[in-house]
Design a binder for these strands. Structure first.
Length: 276
DNA sequence: AGCCAGGAAGAAT
DNA sequence: ATTCTTCATGGC
């Protein structure tokens, strides 16, 4: 058991960071959230003027939550007086998590053409069936466990047509040298990811951003398309992504996440308001 | 009830 | 090199 505290600032908010769609293994608990990441677990408790983080490895989670990046400086450099400023104000406290590469590969294959609540369920069932027993939870499975599971297993947990992708990628990943992948530049690493069956441009960019800490990417999904449908009508997603990386450079990934969270969350809030 | 979801592969054009 | 179709599943 390990533990550390974090003074609150406007530039880290646990709810925005967890609810912005970048990870799938977390759940609200009394007074905060519980997070599972690879073979690690943490509880982040809101104590009013600080967060109390109880976990198995403080060093792991200090890096995981990306407390070394200067989000205030990034945001001030991006202010445009328009939608991006509005989105940053809305998601002021989002941090891009430094997630496990393997976990992001499989999680974002599951994510394609799928709803976030369903993605969570599928990943949870995969972990429950194949992950190492860590006591009160199960770790994300190892590559070997995933590779031995078989396509029928992935179909049985509700992965649908993605079951074949998961099976093939698991077996392919057994021969990958992750250390070597870390040395590649973003473009080369994207090509390696997209060479695998079931990983296209958007899923590759999510893996690059969330699993490899590459911020010079701009995943374009259905929500980002809605953000830009007026500015770039009819533009294909991959072209839009390339354009936005050129526009926002090394901060593209942050911009994408602020816009995604803003668009997607505001939509659900509008729905809720209509009902009441 | 039907629409749609953090898309991608394969076929058709 | 671009568009069109198909692909399982279930939350809403």
């Amino acid at each position: 058991m390990d533990r550390f505290q974090l003074e609150k600032t406007p530039y880290f908010d646990i709810t925005a960071t967890l609810e912005c769609g970048q990870l799938f293994r977390f759940a609200p608990i009394d007074g905060g959230y519980r997070v599972h990441a690879a073979s690690h677990a943490a509880e982040v408790l809101d104590k009013g003027d600080f967060y109390d983080i109880i976990c198995d490895d403080s060093e792991y989670f200090k890096r995981y939550f990306d407390f070394d990046t200067d989000y205030a400086a990034i945001q001030s450099s991006l202010e445009d007086g328009g939608m991006l400023s509005e989105a940053m104000a809305f998601g002021r406290g989002i941090h891009i998590l430094r997630q496990d590469p393997i976990e992001t590969v499989f999680s974002f294959i599951v994510s394609q053409n799928n709803h976030i609540p369903r993605i969570k369920g599928i990943i949870e069932r995969i972990c429950d069936a194949l992950g190492e027993d860590m006591g009160d939870y199960r770790a994300f499975p190892t590559i070997d466990a995933l590779a031995q599971a078989g396509e029928k297993f992935f179909a049985s947990v509700g992965a649908g047509y993605r079951a074949a992708y998961l099976d093939r990628v698991a077996k392919a990943m057994q021969t990958v040298d992750l250390g070597q992948w870390q040395q590649l530049d973003t473009e080369q690493l994207r090509a390696q990811l997209m060479a695998m069956h079931g990983i296209g441009r958007k899923v590759a960019d999510c893996i690059l951003l969330f699993g490899f800490g590459r911020f010079d990417v701009f995943p374009v999904d259905t929500w980002i398309k809605k953000v830009y449908e007026d500015s770039y009508p009819g533009m294909p997603a991959d072209k839009m992504s390339t354009l936005l990386v050129q526009k926002y450079g090394k901060y593209a990934g942050f911009v994408q996440q602020w816009l995604f969270y803003f668009k997607r969350t505001k939509k659900t809030m509008d729905k809720t308001n209509k009902l009441s």
